[in-house]
Computed example of a mutant assay.
Amino acid sequence: MEIRWMRSFLAVAEELNYSRAAERLHIVQPAVTQHIRQLERSVGTPLFVRTTRSVALTSAGEAFLEPCRRALAQIETAERLARAAADGHAGHVRIGFAGIFASAGIARIAREVREAEPDITLEIRPSSHNARLLEELLDGSIDIGLYSALFTSEGIRQWETPPVRLGVLVAPAHPLTQRASIDIGELRTEPFVLTDASAGLVLRDTILETCRSAGFMPIIAQESGDAYSVLTLVAAGIGISLGPDVPEVYPSGVRFIPLLQEGPSLTSALGTAAAGPSAAAIRVLDIARAALGIDGNDDAHHTEH
Protein backbone atom coordinates (compact mmCIF):
# COMPACT_ATOMS: atom_id res chain seq x y z
CA MET A 1 0.00 0.00 0.00
CA GLU A 2 1.59 3.22 -1.17
CA ILE A 3 1.51 6.51 0.72
CA ARG A 4 0.33 8.41 -2.36
CA TRP A 5 -2.73 6.14 -2.58
CA MET A 6 -3.56 6.89 1.06
CA ARG A 7 -3.12 10.63 0.54
CA SER A 8 -5.45 10.55 -2.45
CA PHE A 9 -8.00 8.57 -0.44
CA LEU A 10 -7.89 11.06 2.43
CA ALA A 11 -8.27 14.04 0.08
CA VAL A 12 -11.27 12.50 -1.68
CA ALA A 13 -12.83 11.40 1.63
CA GLU A 14 -12.58 14.93 3.01
CA GLU A 15 -13.55 16.78 -0.18
CA LEU A 16 -16.04 14.17 -1.52
CA ASN A 17 -15.05 15.47 -4.92
CA TYR A 18 -12.32 14.12 -7.20
CA SER A 19 -11.56 17.45 -8.88
CA ARG A 20 -11.12 19.33 -5.60
CA ALA A 21 -9.04 16.46 -4.21
CA ALA A 22 -6.74 16.67 -7.27
CA GLU A 23 -6.37 20.44 -6.86
CA ARG A 24 -5.55 19.99 -3.16
CA LEU A 25 -2.89 17.40 -3.99
CA HIS A 26 -1.55 19.39 -6.97
CA ILE A 27 -1.96 16.45 -9.31
CA VAL A 28 -4.31 15.69 -12.22
CA GLN A 29 -7.71 14.11 -11.56
CA PRO A 30 -6.97 10.86 -13.50
CA ALA A 31 -4.04 10.25 -11.15
CA VAL A 32 -6.35 10.53 -8.14
CA THR A 33 -8.80 8.10 -9.77
CA GLN A 34 -5.98 5.65 -10.47
CA HIS A 35 -4.69 5.91 -6.87
CA ILE A 36 -8.13 5.14 -5.45
CA ARG A 37 -8.57 2.12 -7.75
CA GLN A 38 -5.14 0.78 -6.76
CA LEU A 39 -5.91 1.30 -3.08
CA GLU A 40 -9.28 -0.46 -3.37
CA ARG A 41 -7.59 -3.41 -5.09
CA SER A 42 -5.02 -3.51 -2.28
CA VAL A 43 -7.66 -3.33 0.45
CA GLY A 44 -9.93 -5.77 -1.39
CA THR A 45 -13.15 -3.78 -1.26
CA PRO A 46 -14.67 -0.54 -2.61
CA LEU A 47 -14.04 2.50 -0.42
CA PHE A 48 -16.29 4.96 -2.28
CA VAL A 49 -19.73 4.92 -3.88
CA ARG A 50 -19.39 7.01 -7.04
CA THR A 51 -22.11 8.39 -9.26
CA THR A 52 -22.01 11.10 -11.90
CA ARG A 53 -23.26 13.57 -9.28
CA SER A 54 -21.81 12.51 -5.95
CA VAL A 55 -19.08 10.70 -4.07
CA ALA A 56 -19.66 8.99 -0.72
CA LEU A 57 -17.74 6.68 1.53
CA THR A 58 -18.79 3.06 1.77
CA SER A 59 -18.93 1.46 5.22
CA ALA A 60 -15.46 0.05 4.47
CA GLY A 61 -14.27 3.54 3.53
CA GLU A 62 -15.62 4.98 6.77
CA ALA A 63 -13.81 2.25 8.74
CA PHE A 64 -10.62 2.94 6.81
CA LEU A 65 -10.72 6.75 7.19
CA GLU A 66 -9.48 7.37 10.74
CA PRO A 67 -6.74 4.71 10.71
CA CYS A 68 -5.57 6.13 7.38
CA ARG A 69 -5.55 9.66 8.80
CA ARG A 70 -3.54 8.54 11.85
CA ALA A 71 -1.11 6.53 9.74
CA LEU A 72 -0.43 9.47 7.43
CA ALA A 73 0.07 11.78 10.42
CA GLN A 74 2.63 9.35 11.84
CA ILE A 75 4.38 9.07 8.50
CA GLU A 76 4.56 12.86 8.20
CA THR A 77 5.93 13.08 11.73
CA ALA A 78 8.53 10.43 10.92
CA GLU A 79 9.55 12.28 7.76
CA ARG A 80 9.80 15.58 9.63
CA LEU A 81 11.89 14.04 12.42
CA ALA A 82 14.17 12.33 9.93
CA ARG A 83 14.82 15.62 8.16
CA ALA A 84 15.26 17.38 11.50
CA ALA A 85 17.69 14.72 12.72
CA ALA A 86 19.78 15.11 9.58
CA ASP A 87 19.98 18.84 10.31
CA GLY A 88 20.67 18.36 14.04
CA HIS A 89 17.21 19.47 15.17
CA ALA A 90 16.01 16.08 16.43
CA GLY A 91 17.55 13.05 18.07
CA HIS A 92 18.65 11.52 21.35
CA VAL A 93 21.69 13.00 23.13
CA ARG A 94 23.28 11.55 26.28
CA ILE A 95 24.95 14.15 28.48
CA GLY A 96 26.89 13.32 31.63
CA PHE A 97 28.20 15.41 34.48
CA ALA A 98 30.43 14.91 37.49
CA GLY A 99 29.84 16.60 40.82
CA ILE A 100 27.07 18.56 42.47
CA PHE A 101 28.30 21.89 41.18
CA ALA A 102 28.06 20.78 37.55
CA SER A 103 24.37 20.06 38.11
CA ALA A 104 23.53 23.77 37.91
CA GLY A 105 25.13 23.98 34.46
CA ILE A 106 23.37 20.83 33.32
CA ALA A 107 20.01 22.22 34.44
CA ARG A 108 20.69 25.41 32.48
CA ILE A 109 21.64 23.42 29.37
CA ALA A 110 18.55 21.22 29.65
CA ARG A 111 16.25 24.26 29.86
CA GLU A 112 17.87 25.90 26.83
CA VAL A 113 17.74 22.72 24.74
CA ARG A 114 14.10 22.11 25.64
CA GLU A 115 13.17 25.65 24.55
CA ALA A 116 15.31 25.80 21.41
CA GLU A 117 15.06 22.20 20.16
CA PRO A 118 11.99 20.40 21.55
CA ASP A 119 12.58 17.41 19.23
CA ILE A 120 15.96 16.67 20.82
CA THR A 121 15.66 14.34 23.81
CA LEU A 122 18.33 14.71 26.49
CA GLU A 123 19.32 11.73 28.64
CA ILE A 124 21.17 13.14 31.65
CA ARG A 125 23.59 10.85 33.49
CA PRO A 126 25.39 11.82 36.71
CA SER A 127 28.81 10.32 37.37
CA SER A 128 30.70 10.13 40.66
CA HIS A 129 34.17 10.76 39.21
CA ASN A 130 35.57 13.11 36.58
CA ALA A 131 37.95 10.43 35.31
CA ARG A 132 35.06 8.00 34.89
CA LEU A 133 33.15 10.61 32.90
CA LEU A 134 36.04 10.94 30.43
CA GLU A 135 36.07 7.16 30.05
CA GLU A 136 32.35 7.26 29.23
CA LEU A 137 32.99 9.91 26.58
CA LEU A 138 35.75 7.83 25.02
CA ASP A 139 33.82 4.55 25.01
CA GLY A 140 30.70 6.18 23.58
CA SER A 141 28.47 5.71 26.64
CA ILE A 142 27.69 9.43 26.56
CA ASP A 143 27.87 12.09 23.85
CA ILE A 144 28.70 15.19 25.91
CA GLY A 145 30.24 15.67 29.36
CA LEU A 146 30.53 18.50 31.86
CA TYR A 147 33.39 17.99 34.30
CA SER A 148 36.43 19.61 35.94
CA ALA A 149 38.75 21.31 33.45
CA LEU A 150 41.71 19.80 35.32
CA PHE A 151 40.86 16.52 33.58
CA THR A 152 41.80 16.09 29.93
CA SER A 153 42.31 13.13 27.64
CA GLU A 154 43.57 12.54 24.14
CA GLY A 155 40.62 11.93 21.87
CA ILE A 156 38.32 14.42 23.62
CA ARG A 157 37.49 17.89 22.37
CA GLN A 158 36.73 20.25 25.22
CA TRP A 159 36.04 23.88 25.94
CA GLU A 160 36.54 25.59 29.29
CA THR A 161 33.73 27.49 31.00
CA PRO A 162 34.40 30.85 32.67
CA PRO A 163 35.95 30.26 36.14
CA VAL A 164 33.68 30.47 39.18
CA ARG A 165 35.18 31.94 42.35
CA LEU A 166 35.03 30.08 45.63
CA GLY A 167 33.48 31.43 48.81
CA VAL A 168 32.77 30.29 52.34
CA LEU A 169 29.83 28.00 53.10
CA VAL A 170 28.31 28.37 56.59
CA ALA A 171 25.12 27.49 58.44
CA PRO A 172 22.57 30.29 58.94
CA ALA A 173 23.34 30.48 62.69
CA HIS A 174 27.11 30.81 62.19
CA PRO A 175 28.65 34.10 63.46
CA LEU A 176 30.05 34.80 59.98
CA THR A 177 26.65 34.66 58.29
CA GLN A 178 26.08 38.43 58.28
CA ARG A 179 29.46 39.25 56.77
CA ALA A 180 29.57 40.62 53.22
CA SER A 181 32.96 38.98 52.62
CA ILE A 182 35.57 37.02 54.55
CA ASP A 183 39.36 37.00 54.53
CA ILE A 184 40.62 33.45 54.10
CA GLY A 185 42.98 33.94 57.06
CA GLU A 186 39.99 34.32 59.37
CA LEU A 187 39.16 30.66 58.82
CA ARG A 188 42.33 29.20 60.37
CA THR A 189 40.52 28.35 63.63
CA GLU A 190 37.27 27.23 62.04
CA PRO A 191 36.39 23.51 61.79
CA PHE A 192 36.04 22.41 58.17
CA VAL A 193 33.86 19.77 56.56
CA LEU A 194 35.42 18.19 53.45
CA THR A 195 34.91 15.27 51.14
CA ASP A 196 37.28 12.46 51.99
CA ALA A 197 40.35 11.81 49.87
CA SER A 198 38.92 8.59 48.41
CA ALA A 199 36.09 10.53 46.75
CA GLY A 200 38.69 11.99 44.38
CA LEU A 201 36.93 15.35 44.02
CA VAL A 202 38.82 18.40 42.75
CA LEU A 203 37.16 20.68 45.28
CA ARG A 204 38.86 19.01 48.27
CA ASP A 205 42.32 19.55 46.78
CA THR A 206 41.42 23.14 45.90
CA ILE A 207 40.31 23.87 49.48
CA LEU A 208 43.47 22.36 50.97
CA GLU A 209 45.71 24.30 48.57
CA THR A 210 43.81 27.54 49.25
CA CYS A 211 44.31 27.20 53.01
CA ARG A 212 47.93 26.16 52.57
CA SER A 213 48.60 29.24 50.43
CA ALA A 214 47.12 31.39 53.24
CA GLY A 215 49.56 29.89 55.72
CA PHE A 216 47.50 27.29 57.53
CA MET A 217 46.04 23.82 57.18
CA PRO A 218 42.32 23.52 57.87
CA ILE A 219 41.02 21.89 61.01
CA ILE A 220 38.97 19.01 59.62
CA ALA A 221 35.95 18.33 61.82
CA GLN A 222 34.47 15.66 59.57
CA GLU A 223 34.88 14.13 56.13
CA SER A 224 32.21 12.70 53.87
CA GLY A 225 32.07 10.67 50.72
CA ASP A 226 30.23 13.20 48.54
CA ALA A 227 29.51 16.91 48.20
CA TYR A 228 25.82 16.51 49.04
CA SER A 229 26.71 15.13 52.47
CA VAL A 230 29.19 17.95 53.01
CA LEU A 231 26.41 20.49 52.46
CA THR A 232 24.19 18.62 54.90
CA LEU A 233 26.94 18.72 57.54
CA VAL A 234 27.54 22.43 56.93
CA ALA A 235 23.80 23.12 57.32
CA ALA A 236 23.86 21.16 60.59
CA GLY A 237 26.60 23.41 61.93
CA ILE A 238 29.29 20.70 62.08
CA GLY A 239 31.74 22.94 60.28
CA ILE A 240 32.28 25.32 57.38
CA SER A 241 33.54 24.59 53.89
CA LEU A 242 34.37 26.33 50.64
CA GLY A 243 32.32 26.11 47.47
CA PRO A 244 31.79 27.89 44.14
CA ASP A 245 29.39 30.78 43.67
CA VAL A 246 26.49 28.75 42.28
CA PRO A 247 23.69 29.54 44.75
CA GLU A 248 21.09 27.41 42.97
CA VAL A 249 22.74 24.19 44.18
CA TYR A 250 22.86 25.11 47.86
CA PRO A 251 20.06 24.09 50.24
CA SER A 252 18.32 26.76 52.30
CA GLY A 253 20.42 25.78 55.33
CA VAL A 254 23.69 26.86 53.69
CA ARG A 255 24.87 30.44 53.20
CA PHE A 256 27.51 31.47 50.65
CA ILE A 257 29.86 34.34 51.57
CA PRO A 258 32.46 35.61 49.05
CA LEU A 259 36.13 35.65 49.97
CA LEU A 260 37.55 39.13 50.43
CA GLN A 261 40.64 38.71 48.28
CA GLU A 262 41.03 37.35 44.79
CA GLY A 263 40.58 33.78 45.78
CA PRO A 264 40.64 30.41 44.08
CA SER A 265 38.17 29.37 41.42
CA LEU A 266 36.84 26.27 39.76
CA THR A 267 36.68 25.85 36.00
CA SER A 268 34.58 23.25 34.25
CA ALA A 269 35.02 21.79 30.81
CA LEU A 270 32.42 20.85 28.22
CA GLY A 271 33.68 17.91 26.22
CA THR A 272 32.79 15.45 23.51
CA ALA A 273 34.61 12.55 21.90
CA ALA A 274 36.68 13.61 18.92
CA ALA A 275 35.29 10.75 16.81
CA GLY A 276 32.43 12.62 15.19
CA PRO A 277 29.46 13.51 17.40
CA SER A 278 26.01 13.28 15.83
CA ALA A 279 24.35 16.32 14.29
CA ALA A 280 22.01 16.51 17.31
CA ALA A 281 24.97 16.35 19.72
CA ILE A 282 26.71 19.16 17.84
CA ARG A 283 23.55 21.25 18.10
CA VAL A 284 23.35 20.57 21.87
CA LEU A 285 27.03 21.52 22.18
CA ASP A 286 26.31 24.87 20.52
CA ILE A 287 23.40 25.52 22.87
CA ALA A 288 25.43 24.38 25.90
CA ARG A 289 28.35 26.63 25.06
CA ALA A 290 26.06 29.63 24.83
CA ALA A 291 24.27 28.67 28.07
CA LEU A 292 27.55 28.32 29.96
CA GLY A 293 29.10 31.52 28.61
CA ILE A 294 31.79 29.78 26.55
CA ASP A 295 33.29 31.83 23.73
CA GLY A 296 31.07 31.32 20.72
CA ASN A 297 33.68 32.22 18.10
CA ASP A 298 34.95 28.65 17.81
CA ASP A 299 32.85 26.13 15.97
CA ALA A 300 31.71 23.01 17.80
CA HIS A 301 34.51 20.89 16.34
CA HIS A 302 37.40 22.95 17.71
CA THR A 303 39.67 21.36 20.33
CA GLU A 304 40.88 23.31 23.35
CA HIS A 305 43.35 21.96 25.87
Results as ranks from 00 to 15, higher is better:
9 F>K: 10
291 A>G: 06
280 A>W: 02
144 I>W: 00
233 L>Q: 13
78 A>G: 15
260 L>F: 09
116 A>P: 03
59 S>K: 12
41 R>P: 01
42 S>N: 12
236 A>P: 02
27 I>C: 14
22 A>P: 05
19 S>P: 01
110 A>S: 15
174 H>G: 10
223 E>N: 07
145 G>A: 15
17 N>L: 01
245 D>L: 06
69 R>M: 07
177 T>R: 15
278 S>V: 03
91 G>P: 03
173 A>G: 12
154 E>P: 07
95 I>F: 00
267 T>F: 07
153 S>C: 04
162 P>K: 02
254 V>N: 10
285 L>N: 05
158 Q>H: 11
77 T>D: 13
74 Q>W: 09
56 A>I: 02
176 L>C: 05
61 G>F: 08
302 H>E: 11
61 G>Q: 05
27 I>H: 07
288 A>Y: 00
221 A>L: 00
132 R>I: 08
117 E>W: 04
74 Q>Y: 09
157 R>L: 13
241 S>A: 15
149 A>W: 05
92 H>G: 02
199 A>C: 12
217 M>P: 01
251 P>L: 06
189 T>V: 03
187 L>V: 04
207 I>M: 02
108 R>Y: 04
5 W>N: 14
74 Q>F: 08
148 S>D: 15
270 L>F: 10
39 L>A: 11
37 R>D: 05
27 I>N: 05
35 H>N: 15
287 I>S: 08
192 F>A: 01
253 G>S: 06
102 A>P: 04
65 L>P: 10
171 A>I: 07
87 D>P: 01
207 I>D: 02
25 L>F: 08
12 V>Y: 00
253 G>Y: 07
304 E>H: 15
238 I>M: 10
187 L>H: 05
203 L>E: 08
291 A>H: 01
152 T>D: 06
290 A>I: 06
159 W>M: 11
30 P>R: 01
131 A>N: 04
32 V>S: 02
174 H>F: 08
273 A>K: 09
153 S>T: 04
233 L>N: 09
162 P>N: 02
53 R>L: 10
24 R>Q: 14
16 L>S: 11
161 T>W: 01
32 V>D: 01
198 S>W: 02
78 A>N: 11
164 V>W: 07
46 P>F: 01
250 Y>K: 00
115 E>Q: 14
137 L>M: 04
67 P>I: 09
42 S>L: 06
101 F>C: 05
13 A>I: 10
51 T>M: 10
197 A>H: 13
3 I>S: 08
277 P>E: 10
257 I>R: 05
184 I>T: 13
263 G>Y: 06
37 R>S: 13
266 L>C: 09
